[in-house]
Design a protein around this nucleic acid. Structure first.
Length: 859
RNA sequence: GGCCCCUUGGCGGAACUGGUAGACGCAACGGACUUAAAAUCCGUCGUUCGCAAGGACGUGCCGGUUCGAGUCCGGCAGGGGCCACCA
């Protein structure tokens, strides 16, 4: 019996696709376009099967949409700048470019092995000057348009990687790559003014209705809009006359018992001059830092400045002003008023420094005269009390009322604050896109003229010591000022690599365009109709891209604001991890399972089987795609990746699972191979009539078309796969008799071939050829379900007595209620269950269920 | 600490807007074929009572709404995610 030989078939068909250039895409206005994109990879070395799911998922969509008649764009490129390359160069005394391009070559071959329907003619790498020169051009345009700022600010400094990190790249106080404790440093940096677009980026989230709710929520939280008020407190101090604070609870102003300012607040800094105690206090606060652990354990600390703030409404009342460790300069105005009764943090502080706790919001049912706040602040709803003109109001009314009053008095203003801060893009590294700016002693900061782009990285940089290789390069940074011609210095910072990935999807529309984008191509292809990637990019990459495309729009490089119409976050592939007796991780292929125990292959050393976790190089729980392709074939791997687990959830890679997929591949092949000699030729005309048996098979065929089409459309690959298992189960029981049955079998097998094509494209080609087709399956149109065959004529209805299932009846579809009721009541089991009780009512849900409700005796 | 999500057989998971819980796959078990194994094919497979027909129970736990709840509402427990001294 012929066995399907994936090892021969897969490379063969991949070559045919490539020779016929079937995945080469161009603008075609006669067909609807569909742009499917997986987040492009960072070329870190080799891919493992865990990376593959993402690309296979995109490929299934691409092939499905192509068959459905869409003009599909499915490109691939490389997020090729980044620190890892520089670190590798430092390690082996080579060059980041060498490491990067070697990895790209390896990974490209691996991706090709997976049989992805990618238009490789559009391949790009962000580290190529032909890419980053456009990024520099856009940077200059953004600079002209005011989207770029140069600011001195406290920055997150990674002492290991010797670079600045964006807030988003600091996780629990540590650098996201190095893991080193981040220090605060004051540096002048380049920023994108993303915070100016906070409101726009926030409201536009409402329109992203094809994004996962989770991602939309994360973005909303990240932008962090707070509505509140600024309030100016007059100070009883000759030098510092006023203190402006931000609050989201102006309604609690009568409960204020202190003010607090950040250690970085100008007043605190000023007071610290010549005040040893305060200087020490500030230093102590900075030492403790803001790591998660520190925040958990650190006490609220305050330093009484001696300043007193006058309450805006209560003549004669003053509040002490503290410098406090829990007030952040970066948020709001770096100053607050504290209302201990209604804020837990303020309460902790008040208890420590013995400040008054005055409740002003009284919960429903409590008496304002007796209501007390204990260990926990009251943050709920209620009626205002002890608050003069606000007494009796709800919290919301009180907020409006107090803001109104503050505004009239000229000491406050209703205002909105965002958590989102400007995007610092300066990195003190070599392997990134140079920022095209020049510092001149007389002209200041001067943009590199467009004609001098690209500012290329020098190839002869050295990587044998830490720090920025651009800065220590002997000649690169020394240039003439483009304005006055005097000696000047190039900017030696490079851009955050998130800039590179903020527009690559637009470049794919025409990666060879002479300018940053080809507007015709961008207008045709964008937005990305389906963007697929990990949820770990839910905030950074997606938010930056949304900002960047808006800026591109304003600069004329794109005609839209939202780059990704639909977003899908796929789950990870997980695998058991293994450790040898010394606690060293082992690769799965080094482990042999003998019954319940695992041993190191070829030895008797016991292996500890660890948790099922995300595949990662460091845990060695990875499976190389080459090994899988060699043993089972790529189609089996693709099939397995799409089966069982819903795509948004993690799925576990297992030998048993891939074997199951392999069996299915073999089964489909065998079925086609054995059936074909007995079938009419490809393209035979349908017979006039069909036997009941043949008709039944045709119905299954068409119902499968309808179901699989819908499942693929809705990203339910696991269900599509289940449907195709069922289909094959039905077909293997079908022994066609007569020419009508044989025709029905041919129809079924041709349909099956095209339906499995998105998941198992090589197998589909092989079957398609065996079935006698002269074209390739990749070019075959998606089958259409015939409504006459998908229609159900009879339905099975469940009969319930008092909500419990007691039987079922077979009825013709849409039977009238009387007939259904009569049929139900005629059942023996029903009569028995009713047991002579009176029937109170009969509920009939058409084509689904009958529920007979009886009079319950007694109770 | 805040916000959000999840919890269905031995396992991964189906069950569209409340309407026959457990599709499909994996594992397991029994059988056929085979000198034997693999492959393949047939069958069983939520728990429980029963010889059987059939019945009872069953979607993390407690309660509610409903003729009817895996699905809706309230509370609790466990697991996960994001943010985090954010005023």
């Amino acid at each position: 019996m012929a066995r399907y030989n994936a090892r021969e078939a897969e490379p063969k068909w991949q070559k045919k696709w490539e020779d016929a250039a079937v995945f080469r895409t161009r603008i075609d206005r006669t067909r609807p376009k569909y742009y499917v994109l997986e987040m492009f990879p960072y070329p870190s070395g080799r891919i493992h099967i865990g990376h593959g799911r993402n690309y296979v998922m995109g490929d299934v969509v691409a092939r499905f949409k192509r068959a459905m008649g869409f003009n599909v764009l499915h490109p691939m490129g490389w997020d090729a700048f980044g620190l890892a390359a520089e670190n590798a160069a430092f390690e082996d005394k080579s060059h980041p470019a060498k490491w990067t391009y070697a990895n790209i070559a390896t990974m490209k071959a691996q991706l090709k092995l997976l049989g992805l329907s990618i238009d490789w003619s559009r391949e790009l790498a962000t580290c190529d000057p032909s890419y980053y020169k456009h990024q520099q051009k856009m940077f200059l345009d953004f600079h002209r348009l005011g989207f770029v700022a140069r600011k001195e600010s406290n920055v997150n400094w990674d002492p290991v990687d010797h670079t600045v990190l964006a807030n988003e790249q600091v996780i629990d106080g540590r650098g996201w790559r190095s893991g080193a404790l981040v220090e605060q440093r004051k540096l002048t940096q380049w920023f994108f003014r993303i915070s100016d677009m906070a409101e726009e980026l926030l409201t536009a989230i409402d329109g992203l209705d094809q994004w996962p709710d989770k991602v939309r929520l994360m973005q909303r939280n990240w932008i962090g809009k707070s509505e509140g008020a600024r309030v100016t407190f007059a100070l009883t101090d000759a030098k510092h006359k006023a203190l402006e604070i931000f609050t989201t609870r102006p309604d609690t102003l009568f409960g204020a018992s202190f003010c607090a300012i950040s250690v970085d607040h100008p007043i605190a800094q000023d007071l610290a001059k010549g005040n040893r105690a305060l200087t020490d206090f500030i230093a102590e606060c900075k030492r403790i830092g803001t790591t998660e652990a520190a925040v958990e354990t650190a006490e609220k600390m305050g330093f009484d400045t001696g300043l007193r703030a006058k309450h805006p409404f209560v003549a004669g009342q003053t509040l002490p002003v503290y410098v406090a460790n829990f007030v952040l300069m970066e948020y709001g105005l770096g100053a607050i008023f504290g209302c201990p009764a209604h804020d837990q943090r303020d309460l902790d502080f008040a208890r420590k420094y013995k400040l008054p706790v005055i409740p002003v919001v009284i919960p429903e049912g409590e008496d304002p005269r007796t209501f007390q706040v204990g260990a926990e602040a009251y943050v709920g709803e209620g009626k205002l009390a002890n608050s003069d003109f606000m007494n009796g109001m709800s919290v919301d009314d009180a907020k409006r009322s107090v803001i109104d009053k503050l505004e009239k008095m000229g000491v406050g203003k209703g205002t909105i604050t965002y958590r989102l801060r400007d995007w610092g893009i300066s990195r003190q590294r070599y392997w990134g896109c140079p920022i095209p700016m020049i510092h001149c002693a007389s002209c200041g900061v001067v943009p590199v003229p467009d004609k001098d782009l690209p500012v290329k990285l020098p190839e002869d940089a050295t990587f044998d010591q830490p720090g920025n290789p651009l800065d220590r390069h002997p000649t690169w940074k020394h240039v003439a000022c483009p304005r006055c011609g005097k000696p000047a210095r190039r900017e030696t910072d490079t851009m955050d690599t998130f800039v590179d990935s903020s527009w690559y999807f637009a470049r794919f529309a025409d990666p060879h365009a002479p300018g940053p984008t080809n507007r015709e191509a961008v207008d045709y292809w964008l937005p990305v109709d389906r963007y697929i990637g990990g949820v770990e990019h839910a905030i950074l990459h997606l938010l930056y891209s949304r900002f960047f495309v808006r800026a591109m729009h304003k600069a004329g490089y794109a005609g839209l604001d939202e780059p990704f119409a639909a977003m899908f976050t796929q789950g990870m592939i997980t695998h058991e991890s293994y450790k040898d007796p010394d606690g060293k991780y082992l690769f799965p292929e080094e482990v042999e399972k003998r019954g319940d125990v695992a041993v190191k292959r070829g030895t008797n050393q016991k292996v500890t089987v660890g948790a099922i976790e995300k595949m990662s190089k460091s845990k060695k729980n990875v499976v190389p795609p080459e090994a899988v392709a060699d043993t089972y074939g790529v189609d089996a791997a693709r099939w397995f990746m799409m089966s069982d687990s819903p795509p948004e959830r993690d799925s576990e890679w297992s030998e048993a699972g891939i074997e199951g997929a392999w069996r299915y591949v073999q089964r489909v092949w065998r079925m086609v191979d054995e059936a074909v000699p007995h079938l009419p030729g490809f393209g035979s005309v349908a017979p006039d009539g069909f036997s009941a048996e043949a008709l039944a098979v045709r119905q299954v065929t068409h119902r499968t078309i309808a179901a699989v089409t819908e499942d693929l459309d809705r990203f339910r690959f696991n269900k599509a796969v289940a449907r195709l298992y069922e289909f094959v189960n039905v077909l293997s029981d079908f022994k066609p008799k007569g020419s009508d049955g044989q025709w029905a079998m041919r129809e079924a097998l041709e349909t099956l071939t095209i339906l499995i094509n998105p998941m198992a494209p090589h197998l589909a080609e092989e079957c398609w050829q065996t079935l006698g087709a002269t074209t390739m399956a990749v070019e075959a149109p998606w089958p259409k379900a015939d409504p006459a065959l998908t229609r159900q004529d009879t339905v099975t209805m469940a009969i319930q007595i008092d909500g419990k299932r007691r039987g079922e009846i077979e009825m013709s579809k849409d039977s009238d209620a009387k007939a259904v009721e009569a049929a139900a009541l005629a059942l023996d089991t029903v009569a028995k269950a009713i047991d002579g009780r009176r029937i109170k009512k009969v509920i009939i849900v058409p084509n689904r269920i009958v529920n007979i409700v009886t009079e319950q005796s007694g109770g």
